[in-house]
Design a protein around this nucleic acid. Structure first.
Lengths: 345, 345
DNA sequence: TGTTAGCACTCTATAAAGTTGAGTGCTAAT
DNA sequence: ATTAGCACTCAACTTTATAGAGTGCTAACA
């Protein structure tokens, strides 16, 4: 038995209808809905075939059909035509509100959530290496000193330190110089005990302070290596009856709240910024995150520079409006590209 | 009719039992549960009185009684005995994980959520004024400059700027000096147009850069004025059947997700760091936030310095375990006090 | 006079039985 | 190959019956 053109059309009609209504679709509906001019009986026969082929299924004996994961997959891969998204230029809005990377990403999550009515997530970009660009020490008052650490990629971290001994202005300058000569351009792995000893031998009575600063640098670099995740619109999940069952909802919302598991989407995703801007669709069981086996997740990849990339994801019911979601994501990726090219942040 | 001792005891028993079970409490239960040695019939008479007085209510004619808001209020105000909280020293955990204020508060929210099984929120402290302590400009490369802005209270903000003209090292130093002489010690209101003009006249070809920096300062100050809110354990709400009704849950969770409304608890709360560490209980309708009329919210106030304070809140069902929650909060406030006194952050 | 046993009554929650309607599969006719 | 027609199925809804928890009231009791 083969998937001829008519079967495809019927399958498409079934899925489209189901996406809209969320109810099982019957043969009579298809018979009227399509322009195939076939009676419900014929549709019934075809649908029986489609079921045998595993594209659709009956939730119970005398009900209409709903798509299986395999059905959705076929639909997403070949049947759907992306909607050109009407989401008008979000770019200006974005730029206006977002002066820093962090805010920008949070804004992206929010806008997508509002636009799609699904839950969204955005991860911070994943950097390959974290080298120290420079360190700037400034004395704030007699006993406090501010350390600003700038990493490659202009990531800025700052931290305040308290010294037990009163600080002398010139000493702070010297310390600053010493730190920079020793550490500039180094990656975290390169800061070893030998180096630390050498550095300490140069700083006289400030050994403790130097220790603290080195610790801070280590955590700063570490921190930036971690991928953070912003989510938005988590509660949208509750708007879809098939997911708002207490246990499922609890599972999904917890995952979105805790965020740790979400980083999987960054780790696992193939990086293929092809013509589709690296858009990937995970349907039901295809999800690696357990609590999302009843959802679909659509992710897209944004790239700041060669090799520095993050993910934007949309989480919704399996019957999400894939056409629209993919369209919206493509659009958003375009906007982000623009922003990162004339990079202001 | 009066609230004699026996009535109080019965009321207390009813509430306690209801807090545990969530089911309406009948007279027979009380008759056995308490050591009053009264028959169910007597209890019934007393309960009828208590109902007339407005402390308890029957959800329907032939059911047991549940507390009214008024009943809860009496209970919280006079009847309950705070449980000494067994939550063992959270302080070390806190300090370990939290090197910065932001992380610390996030940790507090998380720990409380895990400990209580309710939803929690923590607000950032509310500052009175925001004066500029100093500004530090550093040239990152030929076209980029990093501005670190330190506000009173050692709040550090940083931002990267891109200049259209190549930067000269000495100019950056001059600019730095000029900015500091003009702006040091000023509050945002004091930066007026006259001042800006004067400043600009001194900086030659860097006018645009100065404009951007001033903008950044303005937003930085503004930003710090805003109260941010961290939440945790929002999904715990779904664990209580009386709140996990779709619409209520959606409302509550949305409020927790959007956070804006939560700042109300800071604005409105009387500041009364009395012997109870400013713990306040809002029961049902007493809540100013609409979506929480079916919840109770318990807030506590932490103070960093005289007049600089924030709120910690626990959001749960009306039948939350007030004794435990108040105990836990008191404990947590103690830990926070300790931390802020030897203030490391 | 306060307390209690006893009983009729009320009302929810749950189960059981009946009804409806959408949708199917199969067969026979076109 | 297509379709009209019909018997059959099954979830969803409605109705009816049943059980049980809890009450209010009355009359008896200490």
């Amino acid at each position: 038995m083969d998937l001829d053109d008519r079967k495809l059309k019927i399958l498409q009609a079934v899925i489209k209808n189901y996406l809209e209504t969320g109810e099982p679709v019957g043969s009579r509906t298809i018979s009227k809905y399509t322009d195939l001019n076939l009676s419900s009986a014929t549709i019934r026969n075809e649908m029986a075939d489609l079921e045998e082929l595993g594209y659709i299924i009956q939730p119970h004996t005398s009900a209409g059909r709903i798509p299986t994961d395999k059905g959705y997959r076929l639909y997403v891969d070949t049947l759907m035509q992306e909607k050109v998204d009407e989401v008008n230029n979000m770019r200006d809005d974005l730029l206006e509100k977002a002066d820093r990377m962090e805010n920008l990403l949070q804004q992206v999550a929010k806008m997508l959530a509002v636009n799609t009515n699904y839950a969204t997530m955005v991860t911070t970009p994943k950097y390959r290496s974290r080298k120290i660009k420079f360190i700037q020490l400034t004395d704030v008052d007699e006993y406090q000193v501010l350390a600003v650490i700038v990493l490659e990629g202009n990531i800025v971290k700052n931290r305040m330190f308290r010294s037990d001994v009163a600080l002398v202005k010139e000493d702070v300058l010297k310390l600053n110089l010493a730190l920079n000569t020793f550490l500039q351009g180094l990656d975290i792995e390169e800061i070893n005990i030998g180096l630390v000893q050498k550095l300490k031998s140069q700083v006289g009575s400030y050994q403790e302070l130097v220790s603290e600063i080195l610790d801070a640098i280590a955590t700063a670099i570490q921190e930036e290596g971690d991928i953070r995740v912003y989510t938005s619109g988590a509660t949208n999940i509750l708007k879809y009856p098939e997911l708002s069952d207490m246990n499922k909802a609890l599972d999904i919302l917890s995952t979105l709240e805790n965020k740790e598991e979400l980083t999987q989407f960054v780790e696992n995703g193939d990086i293929q910024p092809d013509e589709k801007r690296g858009i990937q669709v995970y349907i039901g069981d295809e999800n690696k995150v357990d609590s999302m086996k009843d959802c679909s997740v659509v992710t897209a990849t944004y790239e700041i520079e060669e090799g520095i990339y993050g993910k934007v994801g949309i989480i919704g019911p399996k019957r999400m409006d894939y056409e629209r979601v993919v369209g919206t994501l493509q659009n958003m990726m375009g906007q982000l590209d623009d922003i990162f090219k004339n990079k202001k942040p």
